[in-house]
Each structure stands twice: as structure tokens, then as C-alpha cells.
Design a protein around this nucleic acid. Structure first.
Lengths: 127, 127
DNA sequence: CTGAATCCTACCTGATACTG
DNA sequence: CAGTATCAGGTAGGATTCAG
């Protein structure tokens, strides 16, 4: 079968693997929600993010932010004050990813109804 | 701060939560790779998918396909033959999701270099 | 306030064996 | 071929405590 026009898969399986790995790292729940929060609110400090992202534990907040910083998605700025203040914001790369994810977001928002219906139908069939 | 124009977040926090949940369910590694495989190859049978998606166990293949079927992303067709043949293919909803993810895919493919560089820089700073 | 360190649980996942 | 059932190991993630 011919490759659909809107896919953009590399011919190189090694690149494919790298891309898969990259997406896997970037497409986890907390990363997604943090990108969302940062995209919406702009530069934001640690505790504020903890409040923005409902249900996130301090551990996962720290861990995910570190990971995102390492991937180049967020910039971390420490202000030498007392008490300490640390701000996080999306980098250019982070913003671009947020835009890329926008399509998925829109899709989910638009299709909640269809998904719920599909689930109900499935559960009905298998009850 | 004003809401960026390209975000499409609902005003309703309840919808937001639903969308987050939906994305979380749909954005896992194997689901992503299966969408990719199915989008590329069209209708495909169980064992073929197992070969397409490198590293997936039979258990996760079954589990992920069931989940996707429940969410309405894939259709499952059983052919009453001997030996049994079962084919999976993306539904309309599934195809739309694949297209939505296309942006993320493109982003990842385009920015592997920047990510690797960011990671190297981070590791350098923290060594 | 911003984290790091520890402990502990639950689930994710792979391997293996078995069925229609 | 297309699964299901079971078991064991690793890991993600939460709660708690402590520190700069």
C-alpha cells in the first residue's frame, strides 16, 4: 500500500526509532499538562505550577520539569532572593511543541462525544 | 497574561479534565506506534501488527488494540475461517487522530538535533 | 519556597504456558 | 492464527520527611 500523503515518516529506520523515542519521552501525561499550563500562563514559578496542574505530586512536578529542561522544552530561572524564587517558561522549542500538540488537543476536545459513545457501545457489546 | 490565540482550551474545567483524560489515554507509547503502523499499512492482521511494531509483546498488542477498539479508534473484523483471521484498521476517528498527531511527529523529526543538543548541554552543565 | 531523599505500593510489562 | 491466563521483575508514582 502506498504511503499516505500526510504521513512524514522517514525512510531511515534509525531516524524512525529516534523519533519514536523522542515522542515517547515527550508524550507523557504530566509533560503534556505542564506544557499546557505553561503555554496558557507564561512564566510561572514552581509552586504555582503545582497548583495549576491538578493532581500532580511534588515529586512528579520536579521530575517532569527536570526532564523537560533537559530536552530543551523549558527554561529554568533562579532568582537569588530570600525566600528563593524559581521560574519556569517554555523555550522556543517548547512553544513549537505546544503548537504541534494543539492538533491533538483540538481533536480530543472535538471528539469527546464520539469517544464516549464508542466506549458505551463497546461496553454494551461486551457486557 | 492573555490566552494565546492558537490554544483552544475550553472555559469549562470539567471539559478540560475530560480532554486531559482522553489525551492521557490516547498518548501512550504503544497506542502511538500502532496508530502509526495502521496509518501506514492500512488494514492489518494481528500477527502482522506484532511484526510491524518492534518490541511489543503479544500481551500489550492485545491489550492496546482492545483499548483502542473501545475508544473507537480501530475496527476489529473477524473472518470466520480456519485458521482464524482477524483484521484491524483505523476508523474515521482513528485516522483523524493520526492526522492530529502528524504535527507532533513532524515536530519530533524536525527537532531531533535541537533536542539532542539540549540534552548534551544539560548533561554538560550537570556533570 | 524549592527542592532532594527515602520508603512503599500499584501497575506496567515481558515471559511462559495453554486454548479454540 | 489469535488470543487468554498466570506469574515475576522492574519501574512509575504517591506520601512523607528533611534541607538550603
Amino acid at each position: 500500500m502506498a504511503k499516505p500523503a500526510h504521513t512524514s515518516y522517514s525512510e531511515d529506520p534509525k531516524i524512525d526509532a529516534l523519533v519514536d523515542e523522542t515522542i515517547a519521552r515527550v508524550a507523557d501525561k504530566w509533560t503534556l499538562l505542564l506544557i499546557e499550563a505553561l503555554e496558557e500562563a507564561g512564566p510561572r514559578r514552581f509552586s504555582a505550577l503545582g497548583r495549576d496542574v491538578e493532581g500532580i505530586s511534588q515529586k512528579m512536578l520536579t521530575q517532569t520539569l527536570r526532564q523537560m529542561e533537559r530536552e530543551g522544552l523549558v527554561a529554568r530561572t533562579v532568582f537569588p532572593e530570600v525566600p528563593p524564587r524559581v521560574e519556569y517558561e517554555l523555550t522556543g522549542l517548547g512553544h513549537e511543541l505546544a503548537e504541534a500538540f494543539c492538533g491533538v488537543w483540538t481533536w480530543a476536545e472535538k471528539n469527546i462525544g464520539r469517544i464516549e459513545a464508542a466506549r458505551a457501545a463497546y461496553d454494551e457489546r461486551n457486557s
